[in-house]
Amino acid sequence: MLQEHARIAQFISLATEVNGRKKLQKMVFIAKKMNFPFAEKYELHMYGPYSEELTLRIEELCEMGFLSEQCSDKKSYIQYTYHVSDEGKQFLETAEPPHDKLAQCIERMNGKSSRFLELVSTLLYFDHLTKDEQIAKVHIVKNKLNFTEQEMDTAFTFIDELQQSTVN
């Protein structure tokens, strides 16, 4: 019954830790776009695709004691870091095992910056459009971030690599 909670806890467990709420939001969205079974519904918000349902699920997992949330003051911003607690590890023993390619996908994403993942997830949000249209949309909705052409190319390459390595 708590299968969706288990999937998110598993995700964080596979990542060992995730730094930043925004980063976690984008990573789950990208994994979902790579056809891993996450049920959270996403909409376009300030920082790109965002899921209120995921925010709620994370809060519940923290309340349940399965996730620990650490808040650190980085002077110009506050960063939240998530780990799976010992109780969470016990909870995961009762859950179905994750897809065997999920760990690799998470590892690739976790090594990237929030800004880059924001770009990748926003491009993927518009993946029903042509490449040029995707880029144009990103420039409209992220006009203040001034993504360069090189960043766009790197993001598309990253998406291709991710898709190839996670073909289910």
């Binding site: 019954m1 708590l2 930043g20 709420r21 925004k22 939001q25 918000h45 300030m46 920082y47 965002y50 209120e52 709620l56 519940e60 980085k74 110009s76 911003y77 506050i78 939240y80």
Partner: peptide, 26 residues
């Protein structure tokens, strides 16, 4: 139980705002 035992959650955030350094999305 797949049809007759169901957990359901409701949640709302009445108002949210962005402060520099925080990650609110609204």
């Amino acid at each position: 139980p797949a049809y007759y035992l169901v957990a359901d959650s409701s949640s709302d955030l009445p108002y949210d705002f962005y402060r520099p350094g925080e990650e609110s999305e609204r």
